[in-house]
Amino acid sequence: MLAKRIIPCLDVKDGRTVKGVNFVSLRDAGSALELASFYSSNGADELVFLDITATVEGRGTLISLVRDVSRTISIPFTVGGGIRSEGDVDSILGAGADKISVNSSAIRNPGLIDTLAKRFGSQCVVLALDVRSNPAMPSGYEAVIDGGRTPTGLDALSWASEAEHRGAGELLLTSMDKDGTKDGFDIPLTRLLSTSLGIPVIASGGAGSMEDFREVFDDGKADAALAASVFHFHEIDIPELKEYLRKERIPVR
């Protein structure tokens, strides 16, 4: 039976993790490679690296991080943040990433999804979609960009469906209303998209407790759940989380 996936997200800048990480087990708390390696051997099913580097030099550092991560860990990982072109994707996948995610660049240029899916295959094209609730939208949710600051006028569900038809192989769905609140994932949003689309959905934003994960799998019908700080600050230990989910009869690895 296909397992529900637990995915830690690492925000990186210039090859280093950005959010503070207080793992005593790491020699270098800012080392994205060390953190990735820790998660890989401690029950994470996949990793997502979100690059927030703005400079060209920083992009070079990202590529060498991807190369090191690919040499070191033996689970799949996705790289997102600032990917705008086929060339960006070529160099990230060429360095050993399994998937890339596109967000605002795909909203500005939807044809990018078709291009990437055709050249690299749908299995490595993840649409990252940031969403806010907006009653004026047909689905009740609007796609937003720039960290949630800029509304796009696009209905979240219709944009996600379009991206699926263009060739996106997976959806990384973040509720900007819930992000950072730690009071649980947006269940109605996740359920709506997960049951409407024919591609896997990773739920993100709001994870605070182990119960939140159970709820997003059981009620939200998510295929995977992503979180950052609850893992980085060791508020939730992944092996314990999986033990809990197993007891709740949710299939996990």
Binding site: M1, L2, A3, R5, D45, S122, Q123, G169, E170, L197, G198, I199, P200, D223, A224, R253
Partner: peptide, 15 residues
């Protein structure tokens, strides 16, 4: 087979 609740690709960890 697509439809009936299937997500394609079959992606993730399976036993």
């Amino acid at each position: 087979p697509g439809g009936r609740g299937y997500k394609i690709p079959h992606m993730g960890w399976n036993n």
